[in-house]
Computed example of a mutant assay.
Amino acid sequence: MARNLIADVDLSAIRHNYCLARAQAAHAHAVAIIKADAYGHGAVRVARALETEADAFGVAAIEEALELREGGITRPILLLEGFFEAEELELICQHQLWTAMHSLEQLALLERFLQQRTDVSGLHVWLKIDSGMHRLGVHPDDVQSALERLQALTAVESVVAMSHFACADEPQRPDTLRQLQQIDRSLSGMNIARSLCNSAGVMHWPQAHHQWLRPGIMLYGASPFAEPQPVAAQLKPGMTLSTEIIAIREVPAGDAVGYGASWIAEVPTRIATLAVGYADGYSRHAPSGTPVWLNGRRAALAGRVSMDMATVDLSLHPEARVGDRVELWGANIPVNEVADYCGTIPYTLLSGLTRRVKRRYTSE
């Protein structure tokens, strides 16, 4: 019998979350970020569910864009890291992709390509500005000349100025305001559309909304914020990860459970073994005490997560039996909470699910 570990993906919840993002700035368009296989939810299925609502989709690299085109997605697709060689520009033209541009080297490559391909038209370029994160982007001093070079290319139909916030999920810090000031300086005197907001920007920084939003983690019902937040409270979880109990045993007081003997029974304890482990993407860093949901109430991990299995204390669940379903995260156990226990963020848990986990989709 197949291992019964399932990620149930609620496509209607993802649609709700996209519409919630759009509602924060009714005047703006929104690129639905579905890179990394839609944060583990399945990029093609998520794109199909959003295709009537989404203004565009955002992916990290051209391989992800081609997967969407092969899956029948016709909406605009933005390459967030742009292109790296002329062959990719051919694919961008062929598949009508939008592309970010984060360096003068990419700009020069595009200019050389268009000198040879005078038949190209209708390109959409998003010029990325390094406003302070110092990861990707054109230096602020080079922004205006780069924009002028782009606008001089007759093949380029539209240009959007984009940047990325480093600390938008920490509203008390001054970094976001400094980045906004830098962007204003870089674009001074230029009438150009802007895209600045990731999920945290969408949810907390209305002064940064401008013409294009880029919601990512919030589409999947997880919050970028460590603290409660009004918009986050309206999100619906896009995924419920669940498995089943595959064994139960009585552990005597004083005996240990799992690798490293890190959890020791203080009293005689029933222990359930679950069919899930770090090879499925459930974090090995989840400590004893990490909550799961069993038969309508919480239980807790007992012992170290191994490659294929995890163990749970059944002291408060005398009714539990082999075959019972256990929610690891979802509607009852928020993925943000599990991430806190693991000392990580929900992005890593969701995008880290492996192909061993079966995805099952519902639309309503």
Results as ranks from 00 to 15, higher is better:
I217V: 11
I217P: 12
I217M: 13
M218E: 14
M218A: 14
M218F: 06
Y220T: 09
G221A: 08
G221E: 11
A222Q: 01
S223V: 06
A226D: 08
P228D: 03
P228K: 01
Q229I: 11
Q229T: 10
Q229D: 14
P230Y: 05
P230A: 10
P230C: 07
V231W: 07
V231C: 12
V231R: 03
A232D: 10
A232K: 02
A233E: 12
L235N: 06
L235C: 02
L235I: 10
L235D: 12
K236L: 14
P237C: 07
G238T: 09
G238D: 06
M239W: 04
T240E: 14
S242F: 00
E244A: 02
E244F: 00
E244P: 00
I245T: 07
I245V: 15
I245M: 09
I248D: 08
I248N: 12
R249Y: 06
R249D: 15
E250H: 11
V251D: 10
V251L: 14
V251Y: 02
V251F: 00
A253D: 10
G254S: 09
G254L: 07
A256K: 06
V257P: 09
G258H: 09
G258I: 12
Y259C: 07
G260A: 07
A261D: 13
A261K: 12
S262Q: 13
I264C: 13
A265F: 01
V267T: 13
V267Y: 02
P268C: 02
T269F: 02
T269W: 01
R270M: 01
I271K: 01
I271G: 05
I271Y: 02
A272F: 05
A272E: 08
T273S: 12
V276W: 08
G277S: 10
G277L: 07
Y278K: 10
Y278E: 15
A279H: 15
A279S: 12
A279V: 14
D280V: 04
D280I: 03
G281Y: 06
G281M: 12
G281L: 10
Y282E: 05
Y282S: 06
Y282R: 06
Y282H: 13
R284M: 10
R284G: 15
A286K: 05
A286E: 03
S288T: 15
G289E: 08
G289A: 04
G289I: 04
W293E: 05
L294I: 01
N295D: 11
N295L: 14
G296L: 01
G296D: 00
G296R: 03
G296N: 09
R297M: 04
A299E: 01
A299T: 04
L301V: 08
A302T: 02
G303K: 03
G303S: 03
G303E: 00
